[in-house]
Amino acid sequence: MMNTKITLAIATLLALSGCAVKNLAADTLTIKVIPPANYTASEPIHVVGSFNEWALDGEKAYELKTENGTLSATIPVTEKNVFFTLVKNKNWQWMPANEMAKSQCIYLHQNTGGAAKINVHIPLWTGDKPLTKAAPSLSGNIVQHKDFTLPQFARSSDIHVYLPKSYQLNAKKTYPVLYMLDGQNIFDAHSAHSDEWRIDEQLEELTTKGTLAEIIVVAVPNSAQRWAEYNPWDFKDRDGKASKGQGELTIRAIKDTLKPFIDSNYRTDPQPAATGLAGSSLGGLMAIYAALEHSDTFGFTAAFSPALAIEDMDGKNVLFEAIKKHKNSGNSKVYFDIGQMEYGNYDQIEQLNSLLLKQGFKPENLKLVKDDLGRHCEVDWSRRFPAALEWLLAGI
């Protein structure tokens, strides 16, 4: 199945594209593609992106052509930043993947004018059989708790806990804790669905330099029911059917089961001001929900590219409607960000910011970051993570 985060990003782009600024002279970009070794000419490959409203059909569609044994397409460039990807057989299930068959981030070309060229090598398509396995990439002191029971869902999950460098050196020191959703993508390339966040490598480097405070990070993986477990409110699913959100159970699993275990077994600062929750896409939606409804536990939250297009059966935005009805803003610090290409503009993230302010969140407790180069993928969330955490931990 296609990565749900990529599905959400593409669906949003298809619905909200056409908002790019077009103030540059008409330039071109030639994309030359080396397809997988088993590629056959009967398999059409299209380049889609912000330049053509992500169209696979009609006059705006661009199919790669073979010339002198090379697959290529030349597209018009009227934007400063061009985002694009490739699709095989006009099927969004078939997009570029690496040798491990893990999906890749959408490509970015920064236009400097004139006729530009870019070479793209596609080892595999998403859904292909991997050519090799990703090697484990854990760094630092990471403890695994296999098959940790979550009674709220009558199942278990493998929980990974990153401990700071000084943890073994100072037996009296306590640390703030950040719980991160989609935990399989946080530390390890082997378990990551696509790219990993490299949180362990970043913390090892930045805390050694003294540019970031030390913190314990608990990676909480999702299940196959991610869409329900990371939706706090009842919602319309991708097939247009009514679905029951189980996000409250996910928060309860962390709040009532996992957090007490972590606080009992590690030297944590258990106070709300030192306890955070972070997630991306639907996980970002969960982070905002935690700030709204569970500020008694989570004093800071981080929502990377939160899902802002989830609707109920009446077509209303579930997040915005929940904020409007919310009575108590709490005191949580909330970091949230978005890439411009994800929704075509910043209108929705600005609306989110306005609603939170209107409902009583203090301006100094909100941090909105707009990333003109941001895409909906782990590579860019990882890039924005250090600055987000630095702001969230200030004063703790």
Rank of each mutant, 00 (worst) to 15 (best):
215 I>G: 07
190 H>M: 11
329 S>Y: 07
109 H>P: 13
372 D>M: 11
13 L>P: 02
272 P>M: 13
220 V>Q: 03
141 N>P: 00
328 N>E: 14
15 A>W: 02
190 H>Y: 00
234 D>S: 14
380 D>H: 08
123 P>K: 10
154 A>T: 07
272 P>K: 02
374 G>P: 00
43 E>I: 06
218 V>L: 07
383 R>I: 06
229 E>A: 04
65 K>L: 02
216 I>S: 04
211 T>M: 08
381 W>C: 04
114 G>D: 15
380 D>C: 08
384 R>I: 04
16 L>C: 02
329 S>N: 14
74 T>K: 14
151 P>W: 05
83 F>Q: 14
385 F>C: 01
241 K>I: 10
344 G>W: 04
80 K>D: 12
152 Q>R: 07
256 D>R: 02
308 L>V: 12
339 G>W: 07
322 A>F: 08
221 P>A: 00
266 Y>S: 14
286 M>A: 07
23 N>G: 05
29 L>D: 08
244 K>Q: 10
206 L>M: 09
225 Q>H: 09
167 Y>S: 02
21 V>H: 00
193 H>Y: 03
322 A>K: 09
346 Y>V: 14
150 L>D: 05
361 F>W: 14
50 S>R: 05
313 M>W: 08
71 L>K: 06
153 F>Y: 04
375 R>I: 15
166 S>K: 06
49 G>I: 08
312 D>V: 15
